[in-house]
Design a protein around this nucleic acid. Structure first.
Lengths: 104, 104
DNA sequence: ACACTATTTGGCTAAGATACCAAATAGCGG
DNA sequence: CCGCTATTTGGTATCTTAGCCAAATAGTGT
């Protein structure tokens, strides 16, 4: 039986996933680790913004990092995040049915 | 290739999942449709709060509803949401490793 | 120690989410 | 039509999040 604490823990992780830039970074990290400045180019945001997003992902336990020289490399901690997305896509497909134009 | 619009759409859906009460409701709906007042008991919140949560889920395309008499019954629109949770659990398992006490 | 680059942190503001209350709406039975 | 129950909507206070700037920290090469 799942308790409300279980749902709280899950929600905390899911919330960390709920941002376009963070999703884009996780997606990119699926191909291997990347340093912050590369991720920064990817999402085209300020360094500090990217760093804070990564902090959110780290706190949730979704990524890990290691420092090498000046650069910090982040990597996925739990690689299933991408099949995880399959369900999200299924929802999007359902949403598209019966709608003539894609809403952005 | 995924565009930033794709990530925005995904994030919108994931954000709708990112609340303990909404997760609990979706979990309950996996066993079949339920009316709002039953969901209300489940999450022990005010009627209006529950109704607004359901509205969020509806907008995201995660649930549908039908009205029968006085009651409104909600149901899952895309049932994969639960194996979707498997990955979230995998993250939680990882998080638990190397931590002696469960954080709530 | 100094200059330089990469990253994080603190402070601030604007926008968004949450929860409650009260009021509005909708279907039911008398 | 009225009273009753189920649900939604609007308003508001409060909390959280996001993004930017400036300053702090950390590692490198000179």
């Amino acid at each position: 039986m799942l308790t409300s604490a279980d749902f709280r823990k899950r929600a905390r992780i899911i919330k960390a996933l709920g941002h376009p830039s963070r999703l884009a970074m996780l997606h990119a990290l699926a191909d291997g680790e990347m340093c912050v400045c590369d991720l920064r180019e990817l999402v085209r945001a300020h360094m500090s913004t990217v760093s804070k997003h990564l902090h959110v992902l780290k706190k949730a336990g979704l990524v890990d990092h290691r420092k090498q020289g000046l650069c910090v490399y982040y990597r996925l901690r739990v690689p299933c995040i991408l099949d995880f997305m399959k369900c999200v896509e299924a929802v999007l497909d359902e949403n598209r049915k019966g709608v003539c134009c894609n809403r952005t």
